[in-house]
């Protein structure tokens, strides 16, 4: 009924200290971790093919650079607030520790703690012999009969008390019953008086301040807490696992469910679906679905949207996560055409280039679209074909007169990564064949090459370069070796609102029915070192002599297989499609057979 | 709101969505077929009358083909197909209608290919694949059409799928090699 309040200010500092530490320690740890790892990832971004990143910055329009700067500033503002809180929090902690240390009341309470080792003046790890010898020495000093006669009664009683304590200390370390008491209650005499109370000073609870405190609690428990919980709950409920709004996801699912196979899947179709996204409506409630569609087409056709330019940039930035969400749903519905067109749409938005037979060339900077159709007698559609011509001729084909611009365009064109398949197989870790009902994965060895590089047949890369590590670690986790590769560098995307590095999406299709069998695997780690090599197809004359396989870096891609291998023995055919989300051209598309044997 | 015209016996929904429009067309077609049916004891058995008409037109086409009159043959086959689309009622056995159409389409494909109408042939082949015909000869023709239309990437996808369903097919293998060569050239 009646509580003791913290009159002497002994307990509330500990309470506040505990609460602060619970918040500050993980927050500080998180912040330090981000600082350390954030620095590291920037480092790898800088190592890899920085040409694309540099060019991307160079060719980006003023509005895009402003947009990027704004979003970086927003992020750092929040970080500054967090940092401020951490600094303020630790300052309060330091003050509290100092307060506790200097508070007499707390010190007094602390001295009531019974410490036998301190009383006997020995270390906590002393043996029984040392304990006994220490006791004998001290009892000689403090025994009432041994005390000097000159001491005052006060001094005497103090020393006698000390002697009692020393005896108790000795007993609590040696005598069974006393030791039990000490271990159980922290004192040899058994349970001491304990007090329970409220760790708050009385004035907060008893007087007029109490109404404020009650109001504070009511506000906290009745208003603030439910508000935050309901806001968090509705946020979680409204977003799917892939990070898109549930209404957008259900719209996409509905479109896929009602999809008629006679309908041709085009860029316009995907853009139309995209413009119905709930995220857009929430960002710009005053704009219509048709406006969103127009803005997306503006982005693809590199058209300025007037006073809706900023809206366009925000929508384009958001469409990245929406397209990945749609891709996930499309693969769940096993629809290959929509899956591939979704990735192509992302390319179109990232490069601001429409899907046409000439997309590979139109994604380059400084290209004059008219000259592509008129500039040359041969119909050139691919980067690979482009590099069969001399630089000057390329300038004519692309319609670039300025030599500096031509050099920049050529450096971008030769830095766009293309994947060349060297080896592909189904692998079961630890086995030499794929056995029935085993769990295989798809192991690809690829070469990241430039369109400028001369073609060479995959068998010119010796088998030794394509072997995986054969140790126990790699059998336990076959995918760990892919993580040793560097992250992808910045994409050349001067028309995209944010800096990005993108990825490759790997789709697996069952050849029997032509349908996708699992959700896409995203590949965001590959070495681009080969792109720096000057193995120009126009200058290499003798392939056998000039090609040195050991100078090339082999990329490692591992795609998990979502089902166990079939029960029956035989050959089963799968189509593997690896599409880039960033550039037109560097995709892989091949058939792989799974030989299931005993 | 559903509207019914007692004279034409047709249903209508103003401002209907695409899906509702489709349903309406289906119902109305069924109604028209029923109204036009003279035999009160009709069955799914295909009407011999229609079969005869369609067959006549088609055989006309085959004759013209033998006489090397390709353009006319194509026209006749088109007429035969159109006749089937118009005359066949919705309740006549699906299996029969499907086979009839597929058979005529296969001939149409070959006639188109011979005359260099590759896009037409491709669409017909797409139709055949979509309606369940996944035999090697479909893959062979589709690969060939795609190559002629310079769509080498799609041609590769088709020929590889064809080979995975029929790995020993010689013609498909030849097409695969040829397409790979053209693709390499396409990519410089």
């Amino acid at each position: 009924q009646s509580y003791d309040y913290d009159e002497a200010s002994e307990t509330w500092p500990f309470f506040i200290l505990a609460v602060l530490c619970v918040v500050l320690v993980p927050l500080t740890a998180m912040q330090l971790w981000e600082l350390v790892s954030g620095g590291k990832s920037d480092q790898t971004l800088n190592d890899q093919a920085s040409i694309l990143g540099e060019m991307s910055e160079k060719y980006a329009s003023r509005e895009i650079l402003e947009f990027r700067a704004k979003s970086v500033a927003k992020k750092s503002k929040w970080l500054a607030k967090r940092n401020l809180f951490i600094i303020a929090g630790w300052t309060v902690v330091a003050y509290l520790i100092q307060y506790i240390g200097s508070s007499e009341g707390i010190q007094d309470a602390a001295t009531l703690l019974f410490d036998p080792y301190a009383l006997l003046d020995i270390s906590a790890s002393s043996t029984d012999r040392e304990v006994r010898s220490a006791y004998r020495k001290l009892s000689v000093k403090f025994h009432p009969d041994k005390l000097s006669k000159d001491l005052s009664s006060e001094q005497r009683s103090v020393l006698e008390e000390q002697y009692v304590l020393i005896t108790k200390a000795y007993k609590s370390l040696t005598d069974e019953i006393t030791r039990e008491n000490y271990l159980k209650y922290g004192h040899p005499d058994g349970p001491q008086a304990t007090s329970h109370g409220i760790a708050l000073p009385k004035f907060l609870v008893d007087s007029s301040a109490s109404t404020l405190v009650i109001l504070g609690y009511v506000a906290l428990l009745g208003i603030v807490l439910p508000y935050f919980v309901s806001r968090w709950w509705s946020r979680t409920q409204s977003v799917t696992k892939k990070g898109i709004h549930v209404k957008s996801a259900s719209y996409f699912s509905n479109r896929l469910f009602n999809f008629k196979p006679s309908q041709v899947v085009t860029l316009d179709l995907i853009v139309n679906w995209l413009s119905h996204a709930e995220e857009f409506k929430l960002m710009f409630p005053e704009l219509s679905v048709e406006t969103f569609e127009t803005l997306l087409h503006d982005q693809i056709n590199r058209k300025h949207s007037g006073n809706l330019e900023n809206a366009k940039l925000r929508i384009v930035a958001k469409s990245n996560v929406l397209l990945f969400g749609l891709l996930d749903i499309a693969t769940t519905f096993r629809n290959l055409e929509i899956s591939t067109m979704t990735i192509d749409t992302l390319k179109a938005i990232v490069q601001a280039t429409s899907i046409s037979p000439y997309s590979q060339l139109l994604q380059l900077p400084n290209v004059n679209p008219e000259s592509l159709t008129e500039g040359s007698v041969d119909d050139i559609r691919t980067l690979g074909k482009l590099f069969t011509y001399e630089d000057a001729k390329i300038g004519k084909i692309l319609g670039i007169d300025d030599s500096t611009k031509l050099q920049e365009t050529l450096s971008v064109a030769s830095s766009i990564p293309h994947l060349k398949l060297i080896r592909a197989e189904f692998k079961v870790p630890g086995e030499s064949v794929v056995t029935p009902q085993s769990t295989p994965h798809i192991s690809l060895k690829v070469l990241v090459r430039s369109a400028k590089h001369k073609f060479f047949p995959p068998n010119m890369i010796p088998d030794e370069m394509c072997l995986d590590r054969d140790d126990f670690e790699s059998m336990k986790d076959p995918f760990a070796s892919t993580l040793e590769q560097p992250r992808l560098p910045q994409t050349f995307a001067p028309y995209f609102p944010g800096k990005r590095s993108g990825c490759w999406c790997a789709l697996v299709v069952l050849q029997k029915d032509g349908k996708v069998i699992q959700t896409p695997m995203l590949i965001d780690r590959l070495s681009f070192e080969n792109l720096n090599k000057d193995f120009d197809k126009r200058t290499v004359k003798n392939l056998e002599e000039e090609f040195k396989p050991e100078e090339w870096v082999i990329g490692n891609i591992k795609i998990p297989f979502s089902q166990p291998a079939p029960e029956e023995k035989g050959d089963f055919f799968f189509r593997v499609i690896v599409k880039s989300t960033e550039y037109f051209g560097p995709d892989l598309d091949f058939t792989l057979s799974m030989a299931v044997r005993d | 709101t559903l509207q019914y015209d007692a004279n034409s016996k047709l249903l209508d929904v103003p401002d209907a969505s695409e899906d509702i429009e489709m349903n309406l067309t289906q119902i109305n077609k069924l109604t028209q077929d029923l109204v036009g049916e003279t035999n009160p004891n009709f069955t799914p058995q295909p009407r011999d009358e229609s079969t005869a008409m369609i067959k006549k037109l088609f055989e006309n086409g085959l004759k013209q083909l033998q006489q090397q009159k390709m353009a006319e043959a194509l026209k006749s086959v088109n007429l035969a197909i159109e006749m089937a689309q118009r005359k066949r009622a919705s309740w006549e056995a699906f299996a029969v209608q499907l086979q009839e159409l597929q058979f005529m389409m296969k001939n149409r494909v070959d006639l188109c290919l011979v005359q260099g109408k590759f896009m037409d042939a491709l669409q017909d082949l797409d139709f055949l694949q979509n309606t369940g015909l996944t035999t090697s000869d479909v893959f062979i023709r589709k690969t060939d059409s795609l190559m002629k239309l310079k769509q080498y990437e799609q041609a590769r996808a088709e020929v590889e799928r064809g080979l995975s369903l029929d790995p020993t097919n010689a013609k498909l293998r030849v097409l695969h090699i040829e397409n790979t060569r053209r693709l390499a050239e396409y990519n410089g």
Binding site: S262 | L30, Q97, Q123, T131
Partner: peptide
């Protein structure tokens, strides 16, 4: 049968779309 008819009738539209694309 109606679905088959619809798919057949879509051929013309598909031809247009692909011609434009390519």
């Amino acid at each position: 049968n109606q679905a088959l008819k619809r798919r057949f009738q879509a051929i013309l539209l598909r031809k247009e779309v692909f011609s434009k694309q390519w």
